[in-house]
Design a protein around this nucleic acid. Structure first.
Length: 554
DNA sequence: CACATTGGCGCC
DNA sequence: AGGGCGCCAATGTG
């Protein structure tokens, strides 16, 4: 019984059908379960280690977690559908060729409501034909079986689905967050928490200094247009109120203004209001959105977990007797590029714990900074500045790696799709993009429209160039995290993942097993490299720290 | 009034 | 520099 589908029972709303299915998705035994008995039934079947198949992990899994039930494996039909619909590897499948359907809808907003609550006005599932998960599973398995590289797609779908489980588990468990420490940090930087709508004391002081220096007692610093007029009226010749532009001017208002902007940002993004909204019972519960970015990276839809500023990381504190194991992959994207392209010279540089130092040691560029700029320029598609100047050296030293990203860029400029290592493909450019390109091609190259078309072509080329690397790095990271999750289950004391950020993970671990967790993190990185790239010579170096609070890492 | 867009900036 | 995001306040639009 490889698959166990979780279906709403059309005959009895509120009941759930657990439908067994074989490798090809062909149905077997059915078990009908009342919604209240579902967690116990899932726990019972979990002993047989099925792959749970359901429409949407974000909807099905949270109630199970609340009931204390966890599952090892799942197949998230909605996430996998999105991958298979777009992948060029499955373009010939029935699934890809059908018109848009219910499985193309975005994630549902809320976890599954309890029966008989708010949603009585929704269409009755007994009378409206809903999406059929069993049929969808078969269509997905067919599409994979008929694909050019089924093994890669299977790994991608498993990693994506495990990511969805992890996202739900991390949201459920939360990240250990000390509200008192956070409050102390804010108080130190901004002054005590004001009551009512007042501005914190430090911010008010700075605002007064800025207005005095500008000679404008009433200018409103939070309005960019008004501030811009104020700056220009004071003789500061800026075109915008951007920090980097302000820094180029020497005027008594600039210092306090930069300080004001920094603190105002902290207050609005991660101040007391944020703490009230997102931290409860000593845990930060962000809303992760697996697959929320076209490249396969995760997004968040609340709490801003993907942009926790350095200034508040001290508030992330392990519970007494616990530690935080914080690990990030060093220069992940260049390493991924080296592995994808099979570039032996770049793989040699990657044997250095710091890949950029490896590039310097090989005599390609003079300094670590140059190596970093050149490498990021290759991956992002730099066209100007120091990065573009360094590109020829990189092309000579690492021809296969550079050729891979250049090919991705050229394909994008032609409007073609590109794909990650495991087979996630980029979107097709929009109709307006195509139309501009066709128009420019027919009217010749000299017109203004043709220039616009060329520029949009290069823009899309930069996107596809980055897509193949960023997307493959996201796949490596998902495999890393999935492998780590499995290893954590074998370590006593329930160490658990509490944070994930593109190339970084955090585990909340009992102090006694923290070193064991750190080793599991390293072993998982090795396994991720093997899962994706087989016996590649590229090493995926990690920085691992066992700390009491997040600001102590790095 | 609600909603969408923009400027600016945080993260990788 | 250059790719990918989300969030806030202010501002623009229906």
């Amino acid at each position: 019984m490889p698959y166990l589908l979780v279906l709403d029972d059309p005959a009895r709303p509120g009941d759930v059908v657990l439908q067994e299915a074989d490798d090809a998705g062909q149905p077997g035994a059915r078990h009908i379960v009342g919604v209240d008995d579902l967690p116990a039934a899932v726990a019972r079947h979990e002993r047989e280690r099925p792959r749970w198949v359901w429409d949407d992990t974000a909807r099905r899994y949270p109630p199970l977690l609340t009931a204390g039930v966890r599952v090892e494996r799942c197949h998230d039909l909605r996430l996998c559908h999105a991958i298979l619909r777009r992948s060029t590897l499955t373009a010939g499948s029935a699934l890809a060729q059908a018109g848009p359907g219910p499985w193309d809808q975005p994630r549902t907003e809320q976890p599954l409501a309890v029966a008989g609550s708010l949603f009585d006005e929704l269409p009755d599932p007994a009378t409206t034909p809903g999406p059929d998960p069993a049929a969808e599973l078969r269509a997905q398995l067919d599409a994979v079986a008929g694909a050019a590289a089924p093994g890669r797609l299977r790994l991608l779908l498993a990693a994506e689905s495990t990511g969805a489980l992890i996202a739900a588990e991390m949201q459920h468990d939360g990240m250990p967050w000390s509200a008192p420490t956070h409050d102390a940090l804010l108080t130190q930087l901004l002054g005590p928490r004001p009551t009512g709508g007042a501005r914190p004391a430090r911010l008010e002081e700075l605002a007064v200094q800025v207005r005095d220096a500008l000679g404008q007692p009433h200018v409103h610093l939070d309005s960019p247009p008004e501030l811009l007029r104020g700056l220009r009226a004071a003789g500061i010749d800026v075109g915008s109120t951007r920090t980097w532009e302000l820094r180029e001017h020497d005027h008594p208002a600039i210092g306090p203004l930069l300080a004001y902007k920094k603190l105002a940002r902290l207050l609005s993004a991660n101040g007391w209001a944020w703490m009230d909204a997102w931290v409860r019972d000593g845990r930060f519960h962000p809303d992760y959105v697996p697959g929320g970015v076209v490249t396969g990276r995760w997004a968040t839809s609340g709490g801003g977990a993907l942009q926790l500023p350095a200034a508040v990381r001290g508030a992330v504190r392990a519970d007494p007797g616990w530690r935080l194991v914080v690990a990030d992959a060093a220069q992940l994207e260049p390493r991924v590029l080296a592995a994808m392209s099979g570039d032996g010279a770049m793989a040699a540089a990657a044997r250095h714990t710091d890949l950029y130092e490896g590039v310097v040691d090989a005599g390609i560029v003079a300094t670590r900074k140059d190596a970093k700029y050149a490498m990021l320029g290759a991956i992002y598609g730099a066209t100007t500045g120091a990065s573009a100047v360094l590109m020829p050296r990189l092309t000579t030293a690492y021809p296969r790696a550079v050729a891979l990203v250049e090919q991705a860029a050229r394909a994008g400029e032609r409007g073609e799709q590109v794909s990650t290592w495991l087979g996630r493909s980029s979107p097709v450019p929009g109709e307006a993009w195509q139309a501009r390109r066709r128009a420019a091609a027919t009217e010749g190259g000299g017109s203004e429209d043709a220039a616009v078309a060329r520029r949009q072509g290069r823009d899309w080329g930069r996107f596809t160039r980055n897509f193949v690397v960023q997307g493959t790095a996201a796949e490596w990271a998902l495999c890393w995290m999935a492998s780590l999750r499995r290893r954590l289950r074998d370590i006593p004391g329930r160490p658990h993942l509490v944070f994930f950020l593109h190339d970084e993970v955090m585990v909340h671990s009992p102090g006694a097993v923290a070193d064991e967790v750190a080793q599991a993190v390293r072993d998982a990185a090795l396994e991720a490299g093997r899962l994706l790239f087989g016996d590649t010579p590229v090493e995926f170096a990690l920085q691992v720290a066992v700390v009491d609070s997040y600001d102590q890492a790095k």
